[in-house]
C-alpha cells in the first residue's frame, strides 16, 4: 500500500465534491422534518432529480438548466408525497417508502436512453485572488458554483429558521401542530411548502451526482445517498450547521475509502466499500445513545383539523 499516492490537497477538494449532494439533500430534509414531516423518500427524489437534470442538461447543453430541471422534477415528485400525507392523511413512513420505490422506477424508465451518454460539464468558478492562493486555492476555491451554493444554502436555512418569522412559524408547526393551528397558522400549507423545498433540494443533490460527481447516468446512481442524508439529519440533531459537519464527515469517509482502495490497502474491498454505511450506523448509535435531542415533537404525526 502506498499512502504517499494520496494527495492531501486533492483529497480535501474531492471531499467537498463528494459531500455536496448529501449536504443538499440533508439540508432540505432537515427543513421538512423541522415542519414535523418525516419524508423517507429522499432517495427517490434524489434519483429523480439526477435523471431529470441529466436528461435536460444533455438535451439543452446547459448544466445549469439541468440543475433547475432536476430541482423542479424532484419537487413535483415530492408534491405527490405532500398530497398523500397532508391532504389524504396517509402514513408518512409508508408513503415515503413508496416515494422511493416510485422514484427508482421512474428514474430508470427515463434514464434508459441516456446510459453511456456524456453530460456537459459544469465550469469551475474562478474567484479572483482566492482561487490563485497556493494550496488553499486548489483545496477550497477551485470548485463549481454548486459547492458554494450548497454552503450558502446551509447558512440561509440556519438564518431562516433562527431569525425570520416564517421560520418561527415553521418550527411551531413542527413542534405542536395543534397549537399552531389554534393560533391560526395554516399547518397543511406550511408543511406542503416545506415538502416542496425538501424535494427541490434533494433534486439538486441528485443533479450534482449525475452531472458533476459521477458524471454519468447509471441506474441506481444514488446508491443510498438519500438514506445517508436522512441519517445525517438525525446525526445533526436537526441543526443546520451540524448537517454541514455531518455531510463533510461523510464525504470524507467516502473519499478516503476510495483513495485507500486505489492505493491498494491490505483491507478487503468489500469492507472498504461498506464502510460508509457501517460508519453511518455507528454514528447513529452514538447519537441515539445520548438521547434524541432536538427532534421536532410532532415529527411523523398526521395532522387533521377536526372542528
Amino acid at each position: 500500500m502506498d499512502l504517499g499516492a494520496i494527495n492531501p490537497i486533492l483529497l480535501i477538494a474531492s471531499i467537498m465534491v463528494s459531500a455536496t449532494p448529501i449536504l443538499l439533500a440533508a439540508i432540505g430534509e432537515m427543513v421538512v422534518e423541522k415542519s414535523g414531516v418525516l419524508n423517507l423518500g429522499v432517495e427517490g427524489m434524489m434519483i429523480t432529480g439526477a435523471v431529470v437534470a441529466f436528461a435536460v442538461a444533455v438535451n439543452t447543453g446547459s448544466p445549469l438548466l439541468g440543475f433547475a430541471a432536476g430541482a423542479v422534477g424532484a419537487a413535483a415528485l415530492s408534491l405527490s408525497f405532500g398530497i398523500l400525507t397532508q391532504l389524504l392523511m396517509s402514513n408518512q413512513v409508508a408513503t415515503g417508502l413508496g416515494l422511493t420505490l416510485v422514484g427508482l422506477g421512474l428514474s430508470s424508465l427515463i434514464g434508459k436512453p441516456y446510459e453511456g451518454v456524456k453530460a456537459p460539464s459544469l465550469p469551475r468558478l474562478d474567484i479572483p485572488v482566492l482561487s490563485d492562493l497556493p494550496v488553499v486555492g486548489r483545496m477550497l476555491f477551485s470548485h463549481d458554483i454548486m459547492v458554494y451554493l450548497s454552503l450558502l444554502l446551509v447558512v440561509a436555512v440556519w438564518a431562516f429558521l433562527k431569525f425570520t418569522r416564517a421560520g418561527l412559524i415553521l418550527r411551531a408547526v413542527g413542534e405542536s401542530h395543534d397549537s399552531a393551528h389554534a393560533l391560526g397558522y395554516k399547518v397543511v400549507r406550511v408543511r406542503l411548502l416545506a415538502i416542496l423545498f425538501g424535494g427541490a433540494c434533494a433534486g439538486l443533490g441528485g443533479a450534482y451526482l449525475s452531472l458533476v460527481r459521477v458524471p454519468q447516468w447509471t441506474e441506481g446512481i444514488t446508491a443510498g445517498a438519500g438514506w445517508i442524508a436522512l441519517a445525517i439529519v438525525v446525526f445533526a440533531s436537526w441543526r443546520a450547521g451540524r448537517v454541514a459537519v455531518g455531510a463533510y464527515l461523510f464525504g470524507g469517509i467516502t473519499v478516503l475509502q476510495l483513495n485507500l482502495q486505489a492505493a491498494g490497502a491490505q483491507v478487503p474491498v468489500a469492507l472498504l466499500s461498506a464502510s460508509p454505511y457501517v460508519i453511518t450506523i455507528l454514528v447513529l448509535v452514538i447519537i441515539s445513545a445520548r438521547g434524541m435531542h432536538g427532534a421536532p415533537a410532532s415529527l411523523g404525526r398526521s395532522f387533521h383539523a377536526s372542528n
Binding site: L97, G98, L106, L109, K112
Partner: peptide
C-alpha cells in the same frame, strides 16, 4: 421497458 413495471408496482402502493 422493464423499469415501467417497477414504476407500476410503486404506483400501486401510492
Amino acid at each position: 421497458p422493464g423499469a415501467s413495471i417497477q414504476l407500476f408496482q410503486g404506483m400501486l402502493l401510492f
